[in-house]
Design a protein around this nucleic acid. Sequence first.
DNA 1: ACCGTGCCTGCTCAGATGAGCAAGATTGCC
DNA 2: GGCAATCTTGCTCATCTGAGCAGGCACGGT
Lengths: 316, 316
Amino acid sequence: MTDTDELLSIRAAELYYEENKTQDEIGTVLRLTRWKVGRLLAQAKASGFIRIEIVHPRARRLSVERRLREATGLTDAIVVSSAGVSGDEELQSRTAQAAADYLTGLRPVPRTLGISWGRTLHEVSLHLKQGWANGVNVVQINGGVSLNRRAGTAAATAVTMAHKASGAATLLPSPAILERLETKRAIEADRSVGAVLKLGASASAYLFSAGQADQNSALVDSGYLTEEQVAELVRKGAVGDIVGRYIDSNGNIVDPELDERTVGIPLEQLRNAKTAIAVIAGSSKHAIARAVVGSGLCTVLVTDEDTALAILGEHA
Amino acid sequence: MTDTDELLSIRAAELYYEENKTQDEIGTVLRLTRWKVGRLLAQAKASGFIRIEIVHPRARRLSVERRLREATGLTDAIVVSSAGVSGDEELQSRTAQAAADYLTGLRPVPRTLGISWGRTLHEVSLHLKQGWANGVNVVQINGGVSLNRRAGTAAATAVTMAHKASGAATLLPSPAILERLETKRAIEADRSVGAVLKLGASASAYLFSAGQADQNSALVDSGYLTEEQVAELVRKGAVGDIVGRYIDSNGNIVDPELDERTVGIPLEQLRNAKTAIAVIAGSSKHAIARAVVGSGLCTVLVTDEDTALAILGEHA
DNA sequence: ACCGTGCCTGCTCAGATGAGCAAGATTGCC
DNA sequence: GGCAATCTTGCTCATCTGAGCAGGCACGGT
């Protein structure tokens, strides 16, 4: 009997959603009252037989966002749909777009915005519209990418963001990681660097991404770390890095000595920030995303559906 | 402006379909009148941003069925959905189930049902419910599968179908293809075979599947043809076989000499039949399905969504 | 500037739909 | 078999939604 009902609900759903007939008409066809049809339809929906997807690059998953907020205590969560997406690349692009949208709508508008650098953030900067805000000053909060062959990407990110918001960009003129602790102390003590760090510490909002801990890390790519060093970090439990600092799945610094030599605001600053927006997308970043959210490193997460589900533990 | 509207329609769709808010509530949230929301939603649907799928093994694609009927002049078309299907196997199983359903609902109930044999039809027989009809006699219409290691499948198919309909099965006691024309003539002349063929010719409905023309063909598997012979047939334009007879994409016999040695009712009998139900599923059978439908070998087609779209030329 | 054309907006109204309710059917239990 | 608990059915009513229409607005030609 239940079996018959299930089959009927499928027939009804076909007529309702594919042929868009009215429930009354369906009732006539299937020899049922229109109320029965309504109930069958409701049953089909409840059983999950009806799948409704919004296929659009800007589509979000509100229900996942809500669950994420509830489960993690995030102030806000933006989850872009991965319906109809081919690869990680498009996922990251969609997420960057969503981050740009979020930033544009952010209230109160931050006077000073602290940002990290990387592929993701650069893409965010490109997606921002001219005039997305008026008078936002952008400060880099961790050491730069100067060793990179694509030198200037980090600077371009900050400059673009500031320019499009009629604000000024303040760059952090320092490597990301220094080889000797003394050098790091010295450079931090220097006025030009110290002042920027102090400005960064006073930012009204932060925007940063995360890197996975493997040989594809931007820090390896930029020459600050070797593949072996990253492998060693992974052995010690590292799942990725935030503003140049490697953390484990609990959000703790993996290698305090290395961390000491890393130039940028400390993680505590992010944890205490009123607004810390993390933008993390792609299947390789599920672990670091979970660590960031789980350890309270951000108040807002912008991510893709799969990563969000991974954080919720529904997609392992 | 249109860009803004598109984005709004996506936001509206999210709230409507994911959060199932009323259009009025959405209007409040997005600061729009409820009519505007209604129009945005309509626009989103029209643009194809809203995809509704019925995910269920028994789900059909009524719109495709309709288009197929209109494009080909088929009396009836049954197209099972391939939403959420992993492989060809499940597709074939679903299609077999649908064929069993169709057969069960077929009116007028055929007194005599002529069937071929094969994996697909056997699966159909298994999906039929006890008592699917009352008093249907089942006749084999083409030569058997006796050389097969799983000898008896063909017989079992007919017997099962007949038994479940409280009818009798009549088997065709003959190989599918004979090596010498004389032998074929002789066996046909034999009372035991001739009578069955005559019965088959008078069937009130036919149910058959199709085989693709490659080394996986059931005829190769059963030992009636060698892989080389099939390769030669393909060179001559064969796309597959129906009741043991190889046809090209126009529905014409590929090798008349071979065909002469094949035991079973001629294709003309199917072409002239009032009810000829073809059950064809799987990505490897797109070509033969197109040939069967295109050359009027069946009046009813039961198939999967991808094959149907291939026939319609919408899925190349 | 003026006017016409055509799109967009907000509305009325009727049809479609879901919530809730009471009567009837079914099941399980003694 | 009798009875109670539960589920199902058909209904009323309030709400939601889409069709169609009149007025308003923007745009382009003269």
